[in-house]
Computed example of a mutant assay.
Amino acid sequence: MNSRVGAAVIIAILAAGCTSVSPPPPTVSVGPVTVRPQEAHDVTAAPPAAAEPCDREASLPPGPLPAAGEMPPGSTMAVIARRGRLVVGVDQNTYGFGFRDPTTGRIEGFDIDVAREIARAVFGDPDRIDLRVVDARDRETALMSGQVDVVVRTYSITCERRRSVDFSTVYFVANQRILAPRGTRIDTADDLSGRRVCAVTGTTSLSNLVAINPRPFVIGVTAWTDCLVMLQQNQVDAISTDDAVLAGLAEQDPTVEIVGPSLEVEPYGVGVGKYHEDLVRFVNGVLERMRLDGTWDRLYDRWLTRLGPSPGPPAATYGGS
């Protein structure tokens, strides 16, 4: 083969390679996958109701508050003082009450500042506090086991819960309502029948939802932000819980709104373990001082104005001796 022929052959081969078309890759079809938040589950039965009714808002009357740093010897407060920190069960997912500030990483909110006032009364320093994040379903367990001294976590007082733990006087009153996308035909509890509704496991909201007849399809999750994600992804039709919590969710998503009348009144109290009556009285003394010296109103104006003008602190109800 001479050089001219060889060159021609090479050019022909290269040309054939350039003009050949590779077969297309096989088509891969992936359908959309609905991802539920971890531990989301269908709720088919209401939590057990209390065996006997009670005056759920009544708490022990406070005595005179001791001076900060001078807790009575042998008292629960003295034990806390020796430890050097008040240990508090809180939330980190409820905007306005207990949430983690994305800028500072600190847990802040109305409930957190109430806890700080209790620490201030013990130590004279609101920063002598150890915040422990506790799921709603674990609040009683945390108190009964002694993991925390108190729980300040949008904690509704109920007769059933009073069988396991004690409560302070009411420091905030919420109402269970509904959060739904704007423009949907959901306005009342009856409109939830047959719909998918989200609530957090361990809350009173679940019981009230399961009691609706005909019953909605209730889905329980770990945190209210999980409910908001499910609503945004059309995995549920609505969320129902305290309006104070819903207002924080609505603040994060302008496409939703709070609708309908109250399904149930929800009084919040500070949870305290059984057999610590002195601590219950002490906390009640702190709350009473907050009512009288304007601290409660100051905290409301800092964290909760999205709920409207301050209604003022709820009056204390005392019972026992």
Rank of each mutant, 00 (worst) to 15 (best):
L263Y: 02
R281A: 08
G271Q: 04
G285P: 12
G202F: 02
N208G: 01
A247N: 08
R215I: 01
G248A: 05
D301G: 11
V256T: 15
E266Q: 13
G285Y: 07
R306D: 15
P214L: 11
V197S: 09
Q252C: 03
L299D: 12
T201D: 13
R289F: 02
T184R: 15
N234G: 08
T225R: 14
G202D: 01
V272T: 08
D226F: 04
T295C: 06
S262W: 05
R291W: 05
Y268W: 14
R298K: 11
G260R: 04
I219D: 00
L192A: 04
G294C: 05
T241Q: 11
P267I: 13
W296K: 05
D187F: 05
L206C: 01
S205Y: 01
V197W: 13
L228M: 13
M230W: 09
A316F: 08
N234K: 12
C227N: 06
V259I: 09
L292D: 10
V270N: 06
Y268M: 07
M230L: 06
W224T: 14
R281L: 01
A189F: 02
N213Q: 11
F282N: 11
Q252N: 14
G273L: 02
G273S: 15
E257A: 15
T255A: 11
T184Q: 13
D297K: 12
D297G: 10
A211E: 15
A211F: 00
V236P: 01
E266C: 10
G194C: 10
D297H: 08
V286G: 02
V218W: 00
A250W: 06
I212T: 02
R185F: 04
T295Y: 06
C227I: 04
I258Q: 10
S310A: 15
V280Y: 00
N213T: 14
